[in-house]
């Protein structure tokens, strides 16, 4: 879950220092990469959903 949070903030591009320090301690690269790929897929699907909605 924390990995997803980190990825979400990275899409935006900002992260609090304290939160980052927590990430750096707790997260493994594997978790972040997995969360990143899943989030990218979710991102695509959400966008696609919005597109479907407005072109209806």
């Amino acid at each position: 879950m924390d990995a997803f949070k980190a990825v979400f903030w990275s899409f935006f591009g900002v992260r609090k220092k304290a939160e980052y320090d927590k990430d750096a301690k707790q997260l493994t690269p594997q978790a972040v990469i997995a969360a990143g790929l899943v989030s990218a897929a979710v991102f695509v699907l959400v966008l696609f959903g919005i597109v479907k909605l407005v072109t209806r």
Partner: peptide
């Protein structure tokens, strides 16, 4: 750290 994360996001997107 934000810079690292943002770079990775840009790459994926």
């Amino acid at each position: 750290a934000s810079m690292v994360y943002a770079t990775a996001s840009i790459a994926i997107l």
